[in-house]
Amino acid sequence: MYLALERYSRPASIEECLALLAEAHDEPTALLAGGTELNVRGHEELVHVIDLQALPLRDVRVEGDLLRVGALVTLARLRRDAAFALPLLEGLREAAAGFAVVALQNRSTVGGRVCTDRGDQDLPPVLAALGAKLRLLRPGRAGAVDEQVIDYPLGAAARRALRGALVAEVLLPLGEGQGAYRRFSRTAVDAPLCNAAVVRRPSGVRIAVNLQGPRAAHLKRLGDTESLIASWHAPGAAFPQGWREAVRLSLMTELEPWGDAWVSGEYRQDVTATLVVRALARVLGEEEVL
């Protein structure tokens, strides 16, 4: 594939980066993090890339009850860095290892995964289930920087907030809890056909899935099922007998059958429900497959 690319910039500061972004009205411009999708369809018409590599967006630090993760932190680092070795972030580590290509994990960044339009991603459901927030930066007036913190965007409408912004950090609420991520794919190196992320905190359980195929994103929090679980018990208590069947029943109404050329909607719905149940079993410390 041949890119139309005519201009490569590597700003040395956030301000410089935002200034470049501000003047990018006339030509198709993109921010470049790891660049693992640059040579994949959809970028033929790009004229200008702004490479973020020199920006100070690689920090991982705890601030209060938040883990602040710089947008340029790679998937490889999510897998290995001690900062992520918490039970709460188990799903995050698993999702980072999901697409099992070392060379891509080394380049692919948290910010890139948040911004990509490709639907078949591992990280977004985990971030949604963790209740992640995004710190966005935009060019403001007279060279100022406008900062905005948003909830992890679910759905196409919410994703519009990302337009024209630099995703600077992903903010993860820390605390006690256990996370899990389950994916299903055709081979070990494949985008997930279905996936599910679960995070259980003392305050309750959060579930997110991607009801997507390779071509369209449909990230979803499963609020009804979360409420069903919340209705059963005091936080932290054991689930009732037969919880799997009850959760499954709830999921089959809550998950739309979203099919594509790869699998039918019914199958994706069915297996996604199974993955949610297995991820829940994992956070409960129960056998996943009975």
Partner: peptide
């Protein structure tokens, strides 16, 4: 040329990367 086969791997600062998708 999409980073999916590994034939173009090189080390960038010691880490394996796919050079076909790295400008």
């Amino acid at each position: 040329e999409t980073g999916d086969c590994g034939a173009c791997s090189v080390l960038l600062d010691g880490e394996e990367v796919a050079s076909c998708i790295l400008l």
